[in-house]
Nucleic acid binder design. Sequence first.
DNA 1: TCGACACATTCGGATCCGTCAATGTATTGG
DNA 2: CCAATACATTGACGGATCCGAATGTGTCGA
Lengths: 114, 114
Amino acid sequence: MNDLAMTFKALSDPTRVRILDLLKRADAACCSKDDRVCACDLEAEVKLSQPAVSHHMKCLVQTGLVESEREGRFTYYRINRTAFARLASFLDGFVGSYVPGDADATKTGAHDVH
Amino acid sequence: MNDLAMTFKALSDPTRVRILDLLKRADAACCSKDDRVCACDLEAEVKLSQPAVSHHMKCLVQTGLVESEREGRFTYYRINRTAFARLASFLDGFVGSYVPGDADATKTGAHDVH
DNA sequence: TCGACACATTCGGATCCGTCAATGTATTGG
DNA sequence: CCAATACATTGACGGATCCGAATGTGTCGA
């Protein structure tokens, strides 16, 4: 699978979207500081087992959506804004208005080929 | 699963990303016209069985990423630019720079709680 | 040094996804 | 009408995904 699809797959799980939203707001319980949140706070918020949260974070880090930062016993996570900007830019490529004229006129409705 | 995650899941398959790219360029073989492409052209391009393509298109239409338009025996597909704009806007929400000051100072590093 | 803590990894089971083969439905040309 | 066309739907299979329980790794306080 290509990197792009991998990244979207990381975004295709409700739990991971929720985690990303927590990281964005960065107002979790006790271990947060500025824009980073530690794993234990995420675990408390999403109400899932610790291995499950660890698994999701690994997925988010591997795709580059989130950066991890080890500090002693604690691991802090942070939104990687660059990755989100790149992804948003990709989607914006589908928004630009269609410019006709490229298509060959003989193509239009030429279903005799089949 | 919520709608947002559903949409990202639709984007998490390389075949579907490829199909979307074909729709964006709209220069497939014989049945295309302006910005719409018929199912048979997609089938020829992605080199997959007809049911597989149909399944993927259903997925893309259900999530709103693509609009379908029946015309006689043919079904034309078209990028839904509004949906992509909305999705890009969602991702852009993660790009905006973090504004500190909201967080309570007592929170920072208070790991005694555990 | 030793136990408690924070987190990562592995494993097994249940569920979901992508694919093809077979079949169904609707439209068109003869 | 009837056969051919374009596409949708169903069923079944292999593989991937998500989860918790058990276990491993590295760090810190006592």
